[in-house]
């Protein structure tokens, strides 16, 4: 049984159909990438999984439990966490307070303290800026904070929505190194990216999304070698 199973979901915004019945699976321990251009439905897919929008048809299963009709806060408690597109750190809260929000579902205060120390080991920059208001951080630091915040709830499945968006090439590499590190620590990852090259390098399995449909799937390597993918997403 796959950790996450998306079965034939379709999502509408008013009369516009954003997802036209897509299906895919994420097995425990995998890194799965969804790639596609702007408007392909990548973020919509992520929001549907997190319960922020509800699919009109189809179903989503997490750990064998149907989740497409339950509220987001319950899905988070089941062990899923998201780094949303555009980071969405709490601009008015400090770095530390943002991490505390990430630990909202964690009851054990000692554990939270230890986790914060772990995060600071991984991101020394955040420790330096611990009491700084998150809105004053640079884009890269905000992305690190958004990732750290998502890790505070100890997700089994981490969703990353465009983690490289708006970052310099150096920082993009750093973000992908961190994603690999998180994966090695035992977290299953579903990543959505426009930076197809990077995403396919780390992905065990990938799906190509185009205007609401999955048009291709394969291992990361298969898709990197695919001529259509090369032409459309990897710059020839």
């Amino acid at each position: 049984m796959a950790l996450l199973e998306v079965k034939d979901i379709s999502v509408y915004y008013g009369v516009i159909q954003a997802l036209k019945g897509i299906s895919f699976e994420v097995e425990e321990g995998e890194i799965v990438a969804l790639i596609g251009a702007n408007g392909a439905g990548k973020t919509t897919t992520m929001q549907a999984i997190m319960g922020l929008i509800h699919p009109k048809t189809g179903s989503i299963y997490y750990n064998g439990e149907r989740i497409d009709n339950i509220p987001t806060h319950k899905i988070v408690k089941m062990g899923m966490s998201e780094v949303p597109e555009g980071r969405h750190v709490f601009q008015e809260l400090t770095v530390y307070e943002n991490l505390m929000m990430g630990a909202y579902t964690v009851k054990n205060k000692e554990k939270i303290k230890e986790d914060v120390q772990e995060i600071f080991k991984l991101f020394p920059r955040l420790e330096e800026r611990r009491n700084q208001i998150a809105g004053t951080l640079s884009g890269g630091e905000q992305q690190m904070l958004a990732i750290s915040r998502a890790l505070m709830s100890h997700p089994k499945l981490l969703l990353l929505d465009e983690p490289s968006m708006g970052l310099s090439p150096l920082l993009v590499n750093e973000v992908f190194d961190i994603v690999k590190h998180i994966h090695q620590e035992g977290t299953t990852i579903l990543i959505v990216e426009q930076n197809a090259e990077k995403a396919l390098q780390i992905a065990d399995k990938a799906y190509v999304l185009e205007t609401g449909n999955i048009i291709l799937k394969g291992t990361g390597k298969e898709l990197r070698d695919n001529d259509d993918v090369k032409k459309a997403y990897l710059g020839g």
Partner: peptide, 17 residues
């Protein structure tokens, strides 16, 4: 603090649980 979070960004607050 959850009140501040919701007032600033409802969707982000939801994904905090």
């Amino acid at each position: 603090r959850a009140m501040i979070a919701v007032s600033e960004d409802k969707a982000a607050a939801q994904i905090m649980g």
